[in-house]
Design a protein around this nucleic acid. Structure first.
Length: 547
RNA sequence: GGCCCUAUAGUCUAACGGUUAGGACGUCAGGUUUUCAUCCUGGAAAUCGGGGUUCGACUCCCCGUAGGGCCA
C-alpha cells in the first residue's frame, strides 16, 4: 500500500471517502454520507474510497466491518479502491436468504477497504515528526488534574481545554502519558462548499490530544494523515465534524500538508429533532433491509434528505442521481427522517418491480413465517441425458401440498399494489397457506345482514360455484358469472344495486379477513375444491340455524 | 459551561429583491371499488420575532428567540 507517488491524472482526480468506525452496523446517516460522496465521485469521474477507522480496538469489531461492507454493497454503493483485490465471490453464492437477489451477486466489491489498523507506520512517522519539531509533546497530567483544570475554567466561563505547563519532548516509561499537539492561536478561515466561509478562533482549543503513544493515533490526527496520503478532496462528511475541522487544519499546517476542500452535510434527525440514534427505532440499513425496504427506495429517499434537484422530480434511479447531483443543491439545515415518505417510495418501487423479481424477494418472508418450506426435488435421468436435475419447489407447511414458483407468483401479483414493505406479505396473504381460517361469523355480515340471510347467500354461492366447470375456472369467468348473479340476487330485495350482499360474505369466507384482494382472483388461485370447502366451512358456522 | 451550525405548512423542499409563496409525503373531502390497496378530482395547511437596508425583503444586514451539533 503506497500513496507516495501519484501520476498526473491521479493528482487531479477527485477522490472522496467515507470513514466509518466499525463500532456498530451500517447507520442510515453513514449511508447517506456514503451516497453523497459516491454521487459526487461518480459525477466527477473520480474515485470513492472506503476507509475503516478501527484504531479504537476496544470498541471495534470485525463483525461490524462486515456489516458495513455487506450493506454498502447491497445499496450498490461501490468503492473503487482498496489495498486487497480479494473480495470476489462466486456468482450465485448466497449469504443470507434475504439478499437472494440475482442482481446483487453479479458485482461484489473488488477490493477490501482501507483500514487504519494497517496504516500504523504512517501515523508513527508523522507523530515522530511533530515530536521532533516540538509541535507535539508528551503530557503526563493525571485525569484528576485535567478534571480540576476544566472545572475551574467552566467556573470562570472560559472554554474548557488543557494547556500543558509540563511539556516533555520524550516519553517517560514509568508514567502513563499522552501525546498532545500545541494548537497555534490564530483566526482560521475555512471555506465550506456547502456552508460558505467560516471563521474560528483557535486560541480556545488548547493542547489537543493526538495519540496515546507512537502507535496509537487518536481520531483528529489519524484523519489528517489518512486524508492527506489518500489525496482526499473534498472531504464530504457530516456536520457533526464541523468543530473538528479547525483542529485538523492546524495539524495539517504543522505537518506541511495541503488543505483539502470541505463540505459538511446536514445531519439526519429523529422526529424529535435530535441526532438519529438507536433509541428512536431502526437506524441501521440492515434493519430496513430485513423489514423489506428495497434499496431503490432507500437510495431515492436518502438522496432527497438534504438534497434536491431544483425541479419537481422526486423519483430517481442511481444513475439519474449521479447525473443530477451537485453539492450546491445540498441543504444546510438538518432533515428529519420521515418514515412515511420512505414507505411511499417503497410502495412505489414495489409496484415498479417486475413480478418475478418481486416474488423472489417475498418468498423469504413466507419461509421465515413458517408458511412454506423450500424443498428440492431431484429428478434422475440416465447419464446420457445429464444425470440429474435439481428443482426447487415449496411445500405449504400446514397442508403439505407442494407448489411451484409460478403459483407463488400468482399470489404475490395480488399484493403488488398493496405492499408497503415486503415483510407485510406473510400477514396479508397467510390465508392462502392455511388449512383452517380463524374468524368470527359476524365478519361474514355485510352491513346489516342477518344470520339467515348470510346462510342463504352462502348456500346460493355454493350452488352456483359448484356448477362452474374446472375448465372455466378463471378470474374473468368467475367474475362474469358471479357478478350477474349478484345483480339479479340483489334486485329481488332492493332497488339500489348492492353487490356487497353477495361478494362480501364470499370474500370473507375465502380469506377470513376484512381486507383483502377481490374474491375472483383469490378463487382463481385457491382453485375450485378449496373455494367450495371454505364456503362450506362458513356455512357450518350457522349450523344451529339449519336444524 | 464554552465554541460552532441552522431557521418556508406536521415532514422533505422550490422560489438565487418583484410569484395569487410552487411541488412531494402525510392529512381531510369526493369519485371509482363488495372490502383493502391502486387510480382520479378537490381542500385545509408555511416564510420564528423585532429592528434596519430598499420603491419593494422568504431572499441582504443586525439583535433576539428556538432547535441542533461538538467539546468534558
Amino acid at each position: 500500500m503506497s500513496f507516495g507517488i501519484l501520476n498526473l491524472s491521479e493528482a487531479f482526480m477527485v477522490r472522496v471517502r467515507i470513514a466509518p468506525s466499525p463500532t456498530g452496523p451500517l447507520h442510515i446517516g453513514t449511508s447517506r454520507t456514503a451516497l453523497f460522496n459516491y454521487l459526487f465521485a461518480k459525477k466527477q469521474k473520480g474515485n470513492f474510497i472506503l476507509r475503516i477507522e478501527d484504531t479504537d480496538l476496544e470498541r471495534s469489531n470485525p463483525k461490524w466491518e462486515r456489516d458495513i461492507l455487506e450493506n454498502l454493497k447491497w445499496l450498490k454503493i461501490k468503492w473503487d479502491e482498496g489495498p486487497t483485490p480479494i473480495f470476489q465471490r462466486k456468482i450465485g453464492e448466497i449469504t443470507n436468504h434475504k439478499t437472494q437477489n440475482p442482481e446483487n451477486q453479479r458485482y461484489i466489491g473488488d477490493y477490501g477497504p482501507y483500514r487504519q489498523s494497517q496504516r500504523i507506520e504512517s501515523y508513527t512517522k508523522y507523530i515522530k515528526k511533530l515530536l521532533e519539531s516540538g509541535q507535539a509533546f508528551w503530557c503526563y497530567h493525571s485525569k484528576e488534574e485535567l478534571e480540576k483544570e476544566k472545572k475551574e475554567q467552566i467556573k470562570r466561563k472560559e472554554a474548557p481545554r488543557h494547556v500543558c505547563d509540563k511539556r516533555q519532548a520524550t516519553s517517560d516509561k514509568k508514567k502513563k502519558g499522552i501525546i498532545r499537539f500545541r494548537c497555534p492561536s490564530k483566526k482560521l478561515k475555512v471555506h465550506d462548499l456547502i456552508r460558505g466561509d467560516l471563521e474560528s478562533d483557535t486560541g480556545i482549543l488548547g493542547d489537543i490530544s493526538i495519540a496515546k503513544d507512537l502507535k496509537t493515533p487518536l481520531y483528529n490526527f489519524a484523519v489528517v494523515v489518512d486524508d492527506f496520503e489518500m489525496k482526499i478532496t473534498p472531504v464530504i462528511r457530516g456536520e457533526d465534524h464541523l468543530p473538528n475541522t479547525p483542529k485538523q487544519i492546524l495539524i495539517q499546517e504543522a505537518l506541511g500538508f495541503s488543505r483539502p476542500q470541505y463540505a459538511h452535510l446536514p445531519l439526519i434527525l429523529a422526529p424529535d429533532k435530535s441526532k438519529l440514534s438507536k433509541r428512536q427505532g431502526a437506524v441501521s440499513i440492515r434493519e430496513y433491509r430485513e423489514q423489506g425496504y428495497l434499496l431503490e427506495a432507500l437510495i431515492n429517499f436518502m438522496a432527497l434528505l438534504g438534497w434536491n434537484p431544483g425541479t419537481d422530480k422526486e423519483i430517481f434511479t442511481l444513475p439519474e442521481l449521479i447525473k443530477e447531483f451537485s453539492l450546491e443543491k445540498v441543504q444546510k439545515q438538518g432533515a428529519i427522517f420521515n418514515i412515511e415518505k420512505l414507505d411511499w417510495f417503497n410502495s412505489y418501487y414495489v409496484r415498479q418491480k417486475p413480478l418475478d423479481e418481486l416474488t423472489w424477494l417475498c418468498i423469504p418472508y413466507l419461509i421465515e413465517e413458517g408458511l412454506i418450506k423450500p424443498i428440492f426435488k431431484i429428478k434422475q435421468y440416465p447419464p446420457a441425458y445429464g444425470g440429474m436435475d435439481l428443482k426447487q419447489i415449496y411445500q405449504i407447511s400446514e397442508t403439505k401440498e407442494e407448489v411451484n414458483f409460478e403459483y407463488l407468483k400468482k399470489i404475490i401479483s395480488l399484493y403488488q399494489e398493496r405492499l408497503k414493505k415486503l415483510s407485510e406479505i406473510s400477514e396479508l396473504a397467510d390465508f392462502f397457506f392455511k388449512e383452517k381460517l380463524e374468524y368470527k361469523k359476524d365478519l361474514l355480515s355485510w352491513k346489516e345482514m342477518k344470520d339467515k340471510e348470510i346462510l342463504e347467500v352462502l348456500t346460493k354461492l355454493e350452488k352456483i360455484i359448484s356448477k362452474i366447470k374446472s375448465d372455466d375456472w378463471n378470474k374473468d369467468n368467475l367474475e362474469k358469472v358471479l357478478l350477474a348473479e349478484a345483480e339479479s340476487f340483489d334486485k329481488l330485495r332492493t332497488r339500489k344495486l348492492d353487490r356487497g350482499k353477495l361478494l362480501w360474505p364470499l370474500r370473507v369466507a375465502l380469506t377470513g379477513k376484512k381486507a383483502s384482494p377481490g374474491p375472483f382472483e383469490i378463487m382463481e388461485v385457491l382453485g375450485k375444491e378449496k373455494t367450495v370447502q371454505r364456503i362450506d366451512k362458513a356455512k357450518s358456522l350457522f349450523s344451529t340455524l339449519d336444524n
